[in-house]
Computed example of a mutant assay.
Amino acid sequence: MPGLSISQAEYDYQTGQLQLWFRDSAEHSTYQNVPATVYENLLTAGSKGRYFELMIRARYPSERR
């Protein structure tokens, strides 16, 4: 799932956890309680980085690992 800022995304449909890896970091972030539709829309977004900024970053609790 290449994009300008997101290099990889994984989603757990059972828990609603979204894991995102960013090109500028070896770490990844885990976002909690993300609806499946948000993940699916991320995959098809023209700009994954922009979609992330608008629809995910400040809306869901996260932890950096």
Results as ranks from 00 to 15, higher is better:
Met1Cys: 01
Pro2Lys: 14
Pro2Leu: 15
Pro2Asn: 14
Pro2Thr: 14
Leu4Glu: 15
Leu4Tyr: 09
Ser5Leu: 04
Ser5Pro: 02
Ser5Phe: 05
Ser5Tyr: 05
Ile6Pro: 04
Ile6Asp: 06
Ser7Asp: 06
Gln8Glu: 12
Gln8Pro: 04
Gln8Ser: 10
Gln8His: 11
Gln8Trp: 02
Ala9Thr: 00
Glu10Met: 06
Glu10Ile: 04
Tyr11Asp: 08
Tyr11Cys: 08
Asp12Tyr: 01
Tyr13Ala: 12
Tyr13Gln: 12
Gln14Lys: 12
Gln14Asn: 12
Gln14Leu: 10
Thr15Ser: 14
Gly16Arg: 09
Gly16Pro: 06
Gln17His: 11
Leu18Cys: 07
Leu18Met: 06
Leu20Ala: 07
Leu20Met: 07
Trp21Thr: 13
Trp21Arg: 10
Arg23Gly: 06
Asp24Met: 08
Ser25Gly: 08
Ala26Phe: 04
Ala26Arg: 04
Ala26Asn: 05
Glu27Gln: 11
Glu27Gly: 02
His28Thr: 09
His28Lys: 13
His28Asn: 08
His28Ala: 11
Ser29Trp: 02
Ser29Asn: 08
Ser29Gln: 11
Ser29Val: 06
Thr30Trp: 05
Thr30Cys: 10
Tyr31Thr: 10
Gln32Asn: 10
Gln32Glu: 14
Gln32Lys: 14
Gln32Leu: 13
Asn33Glu: 13
Asn33Met: 11
Val34Lys: 01
Val34Leu: 05
Pro35Asn: 01
Pro35Phe: 01
Pro35His: 06
Pro35Cys: 00
Ala36Asp: 07
Thr37Arg: 15
Val38Ala: 07
Tyr39Ser: 00
Glu40Ser: 13
Glu40Gly: 05
Glu40Gln: 15
Glu40Leu: 14
Asn41Gln: 15
Asn41Ser: 12
Asn41Tyr: 00
Leu42Phe: 03
Leu42Val: 03
Leu42Pro: 00
Leu43Lys: 15
Thr44Gln: 14
Thr44Glu: 11
Thr44Pro: 01
Thr44Phe: 05
Thr44Arg: 13
Ala45Pro: 02
Ala45Cys: 04
Ala45Gln: 04
Gly46Arg: 12
Gly46Asn: 14
Ser47His: 05
Ser47Asp: 13
Lys48Gly: 15
Lys48His: 12
Lys48Asp: 11
Gly49Pro: 01
Arg50Cys: 02
Arg50Thr: 10
Tyr51Ala: 14
Phe52His: 11
Phe52Pro: 04
Glu53Cys: 05
Glu53Phe: 01
Glu53Ala: 13
Leu54Met: 13
Leu54Gly: 04
Met55Arg: 15
Met55Cys: 12
Met55Asn: 15
Ile56Cys: 06
Ile56Val: 07
Ile56Phe: 03
Arg57Thr: 05
Arg57Asp: 02
Ala58Gln: 08
Arg59Pro: 03
Arg59Cys: 10
Tyr60Met: 08
Tyr60His: 07
Tyr60Thr: 08
Tyr60Trp: 01
Tyr60Asn: 07
Pro61Thr: 13
Ser62Asp: 01
Ser62Ile: 02
Glu63Cys: 11
Arg65Glu: 06
Arg65Met: 01
